[in-house]
Write a protein that binds this DNA or RNA. Structure first.
Length: 858
DNA sequence: ATAGGGTTAG
């Protein structure tokens, strides 16, 4: 402000006398026209400018006034010409303060001069204040855009680029663009929208992206593009904040935004979120369109039942499925490995096609081929290929790859090679994926040498083939051959092709990480070969992935070097690749195969520490180690796995586990051969729903021997037996000589001895009592209730054993705690602590009783 | 304005 006063003061001081020469005015001056948008109302007053100026000293003579005006005109023009806009604005300010109108001030200036001033600024490199100046000019009412010539626009672009180059404050660059857009510039010319969006996405600043989108008329389309970009970077949180801005459009849900965010959920792997967004849309009582339905089904394709549920809802609300819907249905079948269902759908779609309702496309055929390939139905996969050709749909690289994979999965190397040739004949350029599929086919067929030979020849010579002259892809191939290969022989052949019906062309081959992984698989147990391939791979600039490391671990362990395998697992961490489930499972497999159970379990614990969830394969791999278990601790580990599996929602294969527990339990009483046979034959009576395992696990896990009770309700006779033995074995293993037994052991029995539909069998109680008394020599009492009231004492259960001979053979007759002889519904059996103690001190029955009488009959 | 392929552990 002080400067302004100084300038004004200097103006006043040097104010010329009346004889001062008038500024030269022979050249035509282009007077500034105020920007129509801001100062329209002032336009009408412009012609009478001179008469309406109210300068402080407006009372002076007309002539003098004009001279002053001329002087100010010259002054402002000089300032503008020199690009001294700050000074100019200060004068403007004082002009306005003293009663002038901005439009009048603007009228003093020539556009060309202002424009020249801007060029001056740019020439002087004063770009930093350019934007500020533009804002000031705009405020005065200039149509700023008109002030810019090509050079000046280029300078503005530079300003933007410079700001963009800083990359540290996205909001700032967006502010700049907002300003420029507000000044009437088309900022797209300064910086490409994609670049701004990319920066916002990289910086994770949805707010800036939203502001940027809002400077364009097609905000909503742009917002969707931004959502997708965030999605590609797996930044669902940012995408969702963009969605919040764009989901409503003119009062109704913006379906495009909805389907976009659903797609983004898919990109980010959060399919549950896609469901809640769909629910939200339903709550608004709007019917989603086909795009929303298709996206939702597509994102949830891996959950077949949910996908089907959506498909049915779609039908219910009357939205007609299109080809994409059917293709997604097929994709979902493919993911769920439901090949036969896919075939049914395929027939339906074929029917629709015959009615002209739709036309199957390459996706339809390709997905069918894939689902059949995965199901090892290679013949049918090849049939689909025929349908496709008949329908005139041209197979693409993906189709060929899937076909080759179909043969690979069936171990048909010859067929795979034939298809590969056919693909080349058809002029389809092979990419890495289908080359890999072919290599995989060789490996699956154990033709390892062939895989290595193919690889070597592709690498050295590219992929060679002859193309028939009459192919309609011909021209494309010619171009390709000419542009990519300056090999003269290729050209020669091309020129002489009137003689030859075909000519050779060559495709280059670029191995990928997968290529090397497949080849490493072909190394069998040759660890050094595999390691060499991994090094070669790195030389090629490819980086090993999880799979590479897993294969290496497998090969190393397979060669007998467990220690080495574990070391590879460690070095993998160092190499910056996090092991995944498969890596750990592979390592666990190695340990289990080499009977190193402890390490196997420690690996399980380790992967859990890293929050890597074990899957069914992991669990089964660990359970395969069953023959190694012997101690309580090991059985407990095993049961813990079992419970883990259940919690994780896997259906365990109970058979081996039951076997294990039975064997372990029966060790308590050292069965004779005859009895073992009986157990084996009774195995079929084990319940199907694994209640036993559940209960055994429950009892063995907390293992608080303080107040022990065994709940055998719901178990079959044989299961109840295992259960009781398991707990006894646990007690025995935990017992140290000299410990005292603090409590009785309670066995909770079925309330209703013969409930209809229950799995309870008659005789369970007898069998248990017999086991305890006669096989283990324990003292057993019954504790029951009558009319719902608990008895403190017990009943004599000798009535259960009419065969008194058996009773008399025992040293421990049943104690009579209740005078009642009437049978009442039994609730519990009690093993007294005294007899338990006695049993434990004897060292258990398993060794001492081996020569005693046979077990009670059942 | 949609969507698809190759390699790993049992």
């Amino acid at each position: 402000m002080r400067d302004a006063i100084a300038i004004l003061a200097s103006c006043s001081v040097t104010l010329p006398a009346t004889h001062a020469p008038a500024p030269p005015s022979h050249h035509r001056r282009r007077r500034c026209r105020p920007s129509p948008r801001t100062n329209q109302s002032l336009n009408s007053t412009a012609p009478s400018l001179h008469s309406t100026v109210r300068w402080d000293y407006a009372s002076t003579s007309r002539n003098r006034n004009r001279k002053r005006l001329e002087y100010y005109t010259d002054l402002t023009s000089n300032l503008a010409r020199d690009g001294r806009f700050r000074d100019l604005f200060m004068i403007a300010e004082s002009f306005v303060v003293s009663g002038g109108k901005p439009s009048q001030f603007v009228a003093l200036l020539d556009v060309n001069i202002v424009s020249a001033g801007i060029s001056r600024m740019i020439k002087d490199g004063r770009l930093g204040s350019l934007i500020e100046v533009l804002g000031g000019l705009r405020k005065l009412g200039f149509a700023v855009v008109e002030l810019f010539d090509g050079l000046a626009v280029e300078a503005l672009r530079q300003v933007c680029r410079r700001q963009l180059g800083k990359r540290d404050d996205v909001e700032e660059i967006v502010s700049l663009l907002e300003t420029l857009q507000g000044l009437g510039f088309s900022t797209k010319e300064f910086v490409a929208p994609s670049e701004i969006i990319r920066l916002c996405v990289y910086r994770r600043t949805p707010s800036a992206a939203i502001r940027y989108a809002q400077i364009f008329p097609q905000v909503h389309t742009l917002l969707c593009t931004i959502m997708i970009e965030f999605g590609k970077k797996r930044d669902l949180v940012s995408a969702l904040s963009v969605f919040e801005v764009s989901k409503q459009n003119q009062g109704c849900p913006n379906m495009y935004a909805y389907r976009t965010i659903i797609d983004v959920c898919g990109l980010c792997g959060d399919y549950l979120k896609s469901r809640s967004i769909y629910e939200e849309l339903l709550d608004c009582k709007f019917i989603p369109n086909i795009y929303v339905f298709n996206s939702l089904m597509n994102v949830n394709a891996s959950d077949f039942s949910y996908m089907l549920h959506i498909y049915k809802q779609m039908q219910k609300v009357g939205v007609t499925a299109d080809l994409a819907s059917y293709n997604i249905l097929l994709k979902s079948c493919c993911l769920a490995a439901r090949a036969h269902l896919a075939l049914d759908i395929y027939r339906d779609v074929q029917h629709l096609e015959s009615k002209g309702a739709l036309k199957l496309d390459v996706f339809t055929y390709c997905t069918m081929i894939k689902v059949l390939a995965d199901a090892r139905m290679w013949r049918m996969a090849l049939e689909i290929k025929e349908h496709m050709l008949l329908a005139g749909v041209i197979p693409n690289t993906v189709t060929w790859s899937s076909l080759i994979s179909a043969c690979a999965n069936a171990g048909l190397a010859e067929q795979a090679i034939q298809l590969f040739e056919e693909m080349l004949q058809a002029g389809c350029e092979p990419n890495s994926q289908c080359c890999n599929a072919l290599l995989h086919a060789c490996v699956e067929a154990h033709q390892y040498d062939r895989a290595f030979r193919l690889f070597k020849s592709w690498k050295e010579n590219g992929i060679k083939m002859s193309v028939r002259k009459d192919f309609h892809w011909m021209n494309k191939i010619n171009d390709y051959a000419c542009s990519k290969h300056e090999n003269s022989s290729t050209i020669t052949c091309r020129t002489s092709d009137s003689e030859h019906p075909s000519f050779p062309i060559r495709f280059s081959f670029a191995p990928t990480t997968s290529t090397y992984n497949i080849l490493m698989k072909a190394c069998g147990t040759d660890y050094y070969h595999a390691k060499a391939l991994m090094d070669e791979m790195k030389m090629e600039g490819l980086s090993p992935n999880n799979i590479t490391w897993s294969i290496l671990i497998d090969i190393c362990g397979g060669s007998g070097n467990v220690h080495g395998a574990l070391q590879i697992l460690r070095s993998m961490h160092q190499a910056g690749t996090q092991p995944d489930v498969v890596t750990y499972t592979t390592a666990i497999k190695i340990c289990v195969e080499h009977k190193n159970i402890k390490v196997a379990f420690s690996l399980l614990a380790e992967m859990k520490r890293y929050q890597i969830k074990p899957n069914l394969v992991t669990y089964n791999t660990l359970l395969r180690a069953r023959s190694q278990y012997g101690s309580l601790q090991e059985v407990q580990q095993c049961l813990a796995i079992y419970q883990d599996m259940r919690k994780a929602g896997y259906k365990p294969n109970d058979f081996y586990l039951k076997l294990l527990i039975e064997e372990w339990c029966e060790g308590v009483i050292q069965q004779n051969k005859q009895n073992k046979g009986q157990i084996a034959s009774d195995r079929a009576s084990l319940g199907p729903q694994s209640l036993l395992l559940e209960k055994v696990a429950e009892h063995l896990q907390d293992s608080n021997a303080e107040s022990l009770s065994i709940d055998i309700r719901g178990l079959t006779k044989i299961e109840a037996r295992i259960m009781v033995l398991a707990v006894l074995r646990m007690i025995k293993e935990k017992y140290n000589p000299g410990d005292s037994v603090r409590d009785d052991l309670l066995i909770i029995l079925e309330e209703e001895p013969s409930g209809c539909g229950s799995r309870h069998e008659t005789g369970s109680t007898e069998a248990i009592a017999s086991l305890l008394q006669y096989d283990l020599g324990l003292e057993v009492l019954s504790v029951g209730s009558v009319d719902g009231r608990n008895f403190n004492g017990g009943f004599d259960i000798s009535f259960l054993y009419p065969n008194s001979k058996v009773l008399q053979r025992r040293d421990l007759p049943l104690k009579l705690e209740s005078p009642s002889r009437r049978p009442v519904p039994l609730q519990r059996l009690k093993v007294t602590k005294g007899s338990l103690h006695h049993w434990l001190q004897k060292g258990g029955a398993s060794t001492s009783r081996s020569d005693s009488s046979p077990s009670a009959e059942k």
